[in-house]
Simulated assay, not measured.
Amino acid sequence: MEIGTKEGWREYVDAIYDRPVPVTVDELREMSFGERAMYKDARARYAQAGAFVKTPQYNTVRRATRERITANKFRQVGKLGVILSGAPGQGKTTTLLQIGKEHELRRRQTSHPAAAKGNIPVVYVAVPAQCTAKALMGEFARFLGLPAHPRRTYGELMDTVANALRRCSTELILIDDVHHLDLRYRQNIEASDMLKQLSERCGGTFVYAGIDVEETGLLSGTREGQIRKRFEVHTAEPYRILDDEERSDWGDLLLAIEDSLCLLKQQKGAILAAALDLHRLSNGEIGVLKDMLQIAAIRAIEDGVEELDIGEFPRKVAQLQKRAAAQLVG
């Protein structure tokens, strides 16, 4: 699925992954080989793509985005936006995509004019590495399905894209991998300036996501004042478990992921017994945690045990500690 085009984005928004109907272990055994394989794939698909975990971070960024979409409807200049920054593995892209998906579905469900036939309420663009302003404009043209002839000037592309975004009533523009706009390089400065210019001309709300955006120069130097005044910056950080509230948030995350795995013999809440070990193994990073648990669930399904091996996680912690101790001695 190529979400960098309007057709791919629409496919992503339209995709529905229903939770597989629970069956008993005996009912699973009675299935044919093909039926079991299909049921296994359905559970893996649901865990990967159908069960989005609405973390406190997600709720905060979603609210900030909605507020700015509303405010920008009445602003002629100085459009407001949101920046989501952080280290890899903190769920930034997942958050960005889900915010866009929910916005478009909400517009459809309420028969909003932005979702009328022919309109494109949400646009998603990933910034290519070593990006020029014209190349980035070409990514917008590609999403919108506009002709981007090589001989077209930057100004012509800007006019074409900005006019198309207005005609299509685009309200939300998602810019991923914005860390590629490292302003130590002149071509990236031009691309950054292009986004600002496009924001003023198209009327939509821009949401940026990238790795350690603060280190790119986008939020420093002469641009810092403009960007920080107009964009609310949110930093995606690993989960901490230093107090009761943080431990509660971590437990809620574990329970949500546990539920998404659809293991037939997994007792609800059993995962909490390994909460501390899972935090040590993942360093509180949601991406690492989800990958670890989904692989463990696939193993449990393949082996037929249909529940997580809770004892596996403290053993892994002990192995890590032993390895770390050996490195210190060495």
Score class of each variant (00 low, 15 high):
Phe140Glu: 08
Ala141Met: 12
Pro113Asn: 14
Glu139Trp: 05
Arg75Glu: 09
Ala114Ile: 12
Leu144Glu: 14
Leu80Asn: 07
Ile120Met: 12
Lys101Glu: 03
Ala116Met: 13
Gln130Met: 11
Pro113Asp: 12
Val127His: 01
Phe143Ser: 03
Leu96Cys: 01
Ala129Phe: 14
Gly89Ser: 07
Val122His: 07
Pro121Lys: 13
Thr94Met: 00
Thr94Val: 00
Ala129His: 14
Leu146Gly: 03
Lys79His: 15
Asn72Tyr: 09
Arg106Gly: 06
Phe74Gly: 05
Ile99Cys: 09
Leu97Pro: 04
Ala148Leu: 06
Ala126Tyr: 01
Leu136Ser: 10
Gly145Arg: 10
Ala71Leu: 15
Ala126Ile: 05
Gln76Val: 15
Gln98His: 02
Gly81Arg: 15
Thr94Gly: 00
Gly89Pro: 01
Ser85Gln: 08
Pro147Ile: 00
Leu80Pro: 08
Ala71Met: 14
Leu144Ala: 11
His112Glu: 10
Ser85Asp: 09
Glu67Ser: 11
Met137Gly: 07
Gly89Ile: 00
Pro147Met: 07
Ile69Gly: 04
Cys131Tyr: 08
Gln130Arg: 13
Lys134Leu: 11
Met137Arg: 04
Pro121Gln: 09
Phe143Trp: 02
Pro128Ile: 14
Leu96Glu: 02
Gly86Tyr: 07
Gln90Glu: 03
Phe143Ile: 08
Pro88Glu: 01
Lys117Gly: 01
Tyr124Pro: 03
Gly81Ile: 15
Ala141Leu: 11
Ala114Asp: 15
Gln98Ile: 00
Gly81Ser: 15
Lys134Val: 14
Ala148Gly: 10
Thr93Asn: 00
Pro88Gln: 02
Gln98Asp: 02
Ala129Asn: 14
Ala114His: 12
Ala87Ile: 10
Gly86Glu: 06
His103Arg: 06
Lys73Cys: 07
Gln76Asn: 12
Ala135Glu: 06
Leu136Gln: 08
Gly81Asp: 14
Gly100Glu: 04
Ala87Pro: 15
Lys73Glu: 10
Cys131Lys: 07
Val123Asn: 03
Asn119Met: 14
Lys73Ile: 10
Ala141Tyr: 09
